[in-house]
Design a binder for these strands. Structure first.
Length: 561
RNA sequence: UCCUCGGUAGCUCAAUCGGCAGAGCGGGUGGCUGUUAACCACUAGGUUCGAGGUUCGAGUCCUCGCCGAGGAGCCA
């Protein structure tokens, strides 16, 4: 490996130049494409050239030839005249590798959409053509094949003459079985000295084995160590405390549990956007830096904005309302910030919120949309994240039960119910965290709490037509004690009443002049809501704490990593 | 800001009424050809968060401080 590290230095210095040179196009429409690439000069001042030709009938079939002009590479041309790859039938994903001097291997890939070749990577140290590597998730379908896996060693067990290398590469895990008499003495002893989370390239044969979770194992032929850590890996195999794990969040993400959570998070976001896109919603993002407060100044992060003050967005809603007047059905999705000094399992100072806003939707249409969105997200996670839910030991039956219709409670009914359950929250007060927990434990599906008192809700919510003390809003509480995941409302569309509400709450009018314009110029019935991504993820994944639902949690005392 | 709990080996945690500072994992050495957080033997590893106090004696009790967690309030 000392040989490799020497080359790595050289790699860095030539990489930049090579990338530059790989940019000239030279394509000829209709016929095959021919590219010539000059490679960096060697010590003698000569340059090599790569000649790449693509077939006219199939641009992805190509031949590559190294034409050497330099003396110390002249012999290579004959021993390495060309390399033919086929992206359709081959398993190399269109990547081609050239061995060149310095012991470097250049990996070049054809990019069909740009009709050009791009430099994928360079590696050094081994005098061979590197096979493109295989992702662990694909191994079950490659039984019997000789493959190379690149990844990290997350655990190792040894029985003297046999090593069990537990490998992960982000797509899955596989056990590499290394038998002493089947590999070189160097590889066997090198493997024994590996520490956890060493980065390795393992070559071997995919072999069926009923004992393996994925059904296959890798019979190791050779191990190439990319880096063996200098120190012991901080996160061990036994339990750790939450504080330690959060301090090591950058490493904690490698664990199978965190990987499962992040995949579920991605599925939640993906499925939500898929649902909205397919339903005709346009993504119109809102600014993160804003001169005006969204829902009152108390929980805002203030920043210096040149010579004036600005705030980090608490919500994109006001902007979404403006966009709804332009595009009808819109949503925004991005990080939002709350400077509350909350220290609970449901709060972060930075969290992601999905905020649809719909023209000509009333309170009821709004709740219907929320219900359909949540159902779609849950069923999508169930469909695509079975392995992840299993890894988290989530009770899937609880999620399979999430189907329309959800329960509905009027605020007054909720207070009555809470009184019977022992809460001392009075009519007119907002529901506390305990109240939400108690309430959601009564239901096996999400429950809407509708029409809260005006006094505890934001100024932009529309008054209830039959009771001026209430507003047309809804909180959607997730079951199993998780509580509020969505807050929504029909918006006040009357200019006069909106101005009155702003004054009632003692807010300055000037920052809202543009917002009031929406009621001056073609006002319209409209509704929307905000869904907290991390809370939805925490609920679906069954997490104890919201901070596991975001890659880099920001809480009051945690800015690092 | 308030309430509650906690801080002991690299990590997770014990330590009875105030009486010799302990275990597992991780590290080191040796053993083991089917291990699944492998196992077995041996071994190294400590300013018990800090300052002060009570006591023959403090990880343990008292005071103050620092740090963290859970909860309240507020919210998604």
């Amino acid at each position: 490996m000392s040989e490799g590290s020497k080359n790595d230095v050289q790699t860095l210095s030539v990489r930049r130049e090579l990338k530059k040179r790989l940019q000239y196009p030279g394509s000829h429409a209709g016929e095959g494409i021919e590219h010539r690439y000059l490679l960096p000069r060697d010590q003698s001042g000569q340059s090599d050239e790569i000649l790449v030709r693509t077939g006219a009938e199939n641009p992805q079939r190509m031949t590559c030839a190294l034409q050497s002009r330099s003396e110390n590479n002249a012999g290579r041309n004959s021993s390495f005249p060309s390399f033919v790859g086929d992206n359709k039938t081959g398993n190399n994903h269109g990547r081609f590798s050239f061995f060149l001097r310095y012991g470097l291997v250049y990996h070049i890939r054809y990019e069909p959409r740009r009709s050009k070749f791009i430099l994928v990577s360079m590696s050094g140290g081994r005098l061979r053509m590197t096979a493109p590597w295989t992702y662990i998730k694909d191994l079950p379908s490659r039984e019997g094949a000789d493959v190379t896996v690149r990844g990290w060693l997350y655990n190792m067990r040894s029985s003297g003459k046999i090593h069990f290398l537990q490998l992960r590469d982000g797509t899955g895990t596989v056990q590499g079985v290394m038998v002493k008499k089947e590999v070189s003495e160097e590889d066997f002893s090198a493997a024994k000295s590996l520490w956890l989370e060493a980065s390795v390239e393992v070559t071997g044969t995919v072999r069926k084995d009923d004992r393996a979770p994925s059904g296959v194992e890798l019979s190791v032929a050779s191990v190439s160590v990319i880096q063996n850590p200098a120190d012991e890996y901080p996160i061990g195999k036994k339990d750790h405390g939450i504080d330690f794990l959060l301090d090591n969040r950058h490493l904690w993400l490698r664990s199978s549990r965190q990987q499962a959570i992040m995949r579920i998070r991605e599925r939640v976001i993906w499925s939500a956007r898929e649902f909205l896109h397919n339903d005709g919603y346009l993504l119109v993002d809102s600014p993160i830096i804003s001169g005006a407060a969204g829902e009152g100044v108390s929980g805002l992060f203030e920043i210096d904005y040149f010579d004036s003050k600005a705030y980090l967005a608490q919500t994109g809603q006001l902007y979404a309302e403006a966009a709804a007047a332009a595009f009808g059905r819109v949503y925004c999705f991005g990080p939002t910030f709350r400077a509350e000094k909350s220290k609970t399992r449901r709060h972060l100072t930075e969290f992601w919120m999905l905020e649809p806003e719909v023209a000509f939707f009333d309170h009821k249409d709004n709740m219907d949309l929320q219900e359909r969105l949540i159902c779609h997200i849950v069923s999508s996670v169930l469909e695509h994240c079975g392995n992840e839910l299993a890894a988290l030991e989530r009770d899937v039956s609880k999620l399979e039960n999430i189907k329309a219709p959800f329960y509905h409670l009027q605020y007054g009914e909720a207070i009555e119910m809470l009184k019977k359950l022992g809460s001392d929250t009075l009519y007119g007060e907002d529901l506390g965290n305990d109240d939400e927990t108690i309430l959601t434990q009564q239901f096996d599906r999400p429950v809407f709490i509708e029409c809260y008192p005006k006094s505890v809700k934001a100024f932009y919510m529309k008054e209830h037509p039959e009771n001026q003390d209430l507003v047309l809003c809804d909180d959607l509480l997730a079951p199993e004690g998780y509580g509020e995941i969505i807050g929504g409302s029909q918006r006040e569309d009357s200019y006069e009443r909106l101005v009155a509400r702003i004054r009632e709450q003692g807010l300055p009018e000037e920052p809202y002049d543009w917002y009031l314009d929406l009621r001056r110029y073609g006002t319209f019935v409209h509704s929307g809501f905000g869904m907290g991504i991390e809370r939805v993820v925490a609920w679906i994944a069954g997490l104890q704490h919201i901070r596991e639902a975001i890659p880099w949690p920001r809480t009051i005392y945690r800015l690092k990593p």
